[in-house]
Design a protein around this nucleic acid. Sequence first.
DNA 1: CGACTCTTTGAACTACCTCAAATGTGGTGG
DNA 2: CCACCACATTTGAGGTAGTTCAAAGAGTCG
Lengths: 229, 229
Amino acid sequence: MRSSELPQVKALGLFETMSEQSFERLMQAAYLQTFPAHLTLIHEGDTADFLYVLVEGAVELYAAANGREETMAVVRPVETFILAAVLKDAVYLMAARTIARSRILLVSAADVRLAFEEDAAFARAIVSELATRYRGVVKEHKNIKLRSSVERLANRLIRYEAEQGGHGVLELPYEKRILASLLGMTPENLSRAFRTLKPYGVSVNGSSVVLNDLKALAVIAKPNLLIDG
Amino acid sequence: MRSSELPQVKALGLFETMSEQSFERLMQAAYLQTFPAHLTLIHEGDTADFLYVLVEGAVELYAAANGREETMAVVRPVETFILAAVLKDAVYLMAARTIARSRILLVSAADVRLAFEEDAAFARAIVSELATRYRGVVKEHKNIKLRSSVERLANRLIRYEAEQGGHGVLELPYEKRILASLLGMTPENLSRAFRTLKPYGVSVNGSSVVLNDLKALAVIAKPNLLIDG
DNA sequence: CGACTCTTTGAACTACCTCAAATGTGGTGG
DNA sequence: CCACCACATTTGAGGTAGTTCAAAGAGTCG
């Protein structure tokens, strides 16, 4: 693999504390590859042969059943995905496809499990990462079970605005179609939810959103650190 | 703590492989306590001071927001709960209360983190447990996003029947009110969902359920190993 | 420019919820 | 052991959030 991205990967929470030696061994059999947009990387039910690290781009994790298909999460750089399946040597519960052209590091799953055995710092980092991910899914599950779709959208907008600098403006990081599915609604309903939020200072123009009245928006969103934090 | 339950705890996947020495140290500062039914053990947002091990009884994990309250999971013996919060030294994302009179082992969270550092086998077990839990929440999330309430009930009945011996009969392990919330619906809607399943061989009498036509039930349930497995 | 796909809008439908009341059930104290 | 009470469950009626289907704009990319 090209070595120019290595420092970026090593800086990842998961690899940061592990020994240089273990890291090098792990990277020796790793591929850094560029994939075009809309390419399916993994299918539900496949065995987990690789741990994926998204270096650049965006990846959608989705699941299908009963003829329906829903976005479960969107991975942004630099982040790993499907760690749990790799550690359990189990099949993937979610499928993954690129949303945009993406640079992805593929690390051998067997090597990850080996490094876990041999490097205590790596083991700690894995636990930390896994626990964080676990809490992330729990929050998402609370989000779905405890909130209406308009509330979910309002809180998501508040989150994006904060992540993007807190200047009252934000760019939707991917298509509304995907955002809708991620928030557990149809595209049509997302469109209507945006209109519902207009009286609360939300104006939308394509993928650009302006929040003119954060206070009013917070009243309807009722943000909650134990869901959004 | 009483020592008669110790073997039962040691046999837990999480503690099974750890050294006797580490285990004994962990248990030295642990309490085994009996709690009456309907007692709140932990509140959302509390700091995680203990890892809980349910030895006997039943515990409901729930979450509240917007004046609503929903059951997130039900813990059955012998199982741990809120492991992720303990490992991250973070606040609990879910509250917990006993459903029935319960015997619960409380292990110091700091001791768990210490044992994790010192005992590699324990570290492995924790990762395995955490990864399994992670996959459990993902499955539950798929369940909610991809299925209707009747489908969720049908699959849940199929699961209980299998767990309880596969003889075509099952006992609902807790109140319908809680089952309803766990499945993401109101008690009224659960009652109607049971009636919807009657033509598929489901007859209910209090907490006793008979499945007279598993084949027909499976047709409507469309069970899926990547959700129910 | 033309052919996509995405997004929005409208209209009709449906799954699920809310409210209210009747009925059933388990636990408690006399 | 029984009567009572509180609460769980069921049933009915009506409402609402969200879906589906259809079709018209609006970007986007070759």
